[in-house]
Amino acid sequence: MPRSPLPPRDGISATALRAPGGKATHAKNHLPVPDTIGQWLETEFPEAAPESRRTLLTDGDMRDEAGLPVGWDDPVIPGGFYFFHRPVPPEERIPFDVGTVFEDEDLLVVDKPHFLASTPNGRFVRECVVTRLRVDLDQPDLVAIHRLDRITAGLLVLSKRPETRGRYQRLFQDRTVHKTYRALAPAPPAELEFPLERRSRLVKPVGGRQVLETEGEANALSRIRLVRTTCSPDLPAHDPDSQRSTDSARPPRRGEKIAEYELEPFTGKTHQLRVHMNALGLPILGDPVYPVDLAPDPYDFSSPLQLLAAELAFADPLTGRPRHFATDLELDPSAFRSESG
């Protein structure tokens, strides 16, 4: 896809839309090409009000690949890309700040807090790391070159310059970045020996939130090391109406053993570490999806997931020198709800 001719607006990148037809292979190249831009937008957004479609050209500043403004009666370029700013409503602020770990002319490494998305995603477009920092730092070219789950905290690497972005992105695509996570979970049973590796096939069903371990060739590998075991601190009483109804789903009671683990993902599947820990009978504390999907309110900040992207290491593709970054954040066993003993 060509680079957008429109700069971000309020930190939000322009939307790209590809027209039907054309000679290149894409999802809509077999469809008939409408005569005009207006007819095309009517087929793309049939439920939108006519005035809303027209505002994509005016308020949205719709442009073609060459950066030229687009008119309602202009012919459609078969298979061409068009760019526009879509309306984005205000969002309630996620009340946590992003911390800076490292910065040079190419990279910005930050500590992403729990509950703040890495990139625009679903209902969170303004309230994510990328949009916030583009605005706060006046750096419209910032792009996250990997992702963390919204409820996972820790190190996130952003690229500042398009000229060098691809070489850093390639590190993550080729899985040459060594990642280390830390997590708090129930203490393990005596029969589990550490360090151990969990290798399995992970599949995310369409429409589901939980990723499942299934039969078949393994596509996910994690190494898990036990760091230390301690007693659960004196935590606030658990809400008796909580949906955590089974023994495997509840967090530890006061005085029960919890443990800190070091986790290394050798593959990058969605929810991989959370699924593998849960499969071992060690669900990460504060996890709202495993083993029981609680369908949490995204603005409920009472039980942060005790999973932290703690370290990143790689050979810099520009200089060949080793790079190592460590989070300034800490796990907090007192930050999740528990049952009284």
Rank of each mutant, 00 (worst) to 15 (best):
G11E: 11
S334K: 00
E51A: 06
R165S: 07
E91Y: 09
V129E: 08
R134W: 03
S232M: 07
L305G: 12
D149F: 04
E260Q: 13
E51Q: 13
P188Y: 03
R147T: 11
P162G: 00
V157P: 08
D136G: 01
T270P: 05
F336T: 13
I37C: 00
P265Q: 06
T267D: 07
V130T: 05
A295D: 06
L184W: 11
R126H: 12
N121G: 06
R274Q: 06
H146G: 11
F102T: 01
V157I: 06
R63L: 05
G80R: 01
D300S: 10
D74I: 08
L17R: 00
W72L: 13
M1T: 12
T100V: 13
L133M: 03
R9K: 09
R182Y: 15
P317Y: 07
R225Y: 15
G166K: 04
A27Y: 01
G281T: 10
T152Q: 07
S303N: 09
T267Y: 09
R132L: 02
R225I: 11
R254I: 10
P95F: 14
E42N: 11
V275N: 05
G268W: 12
Q139S: 06
D111T: 05
L282H: 14
R199Q: 12
Q306E: 14
T270V: 03
R223A: 15
E42V: 03
R254C: 10
V206M: 14
R198K: 15
A310Q: 07
R9P: 12
K179R: 15
S222N: 12
E217Y: 05
T327S: 05
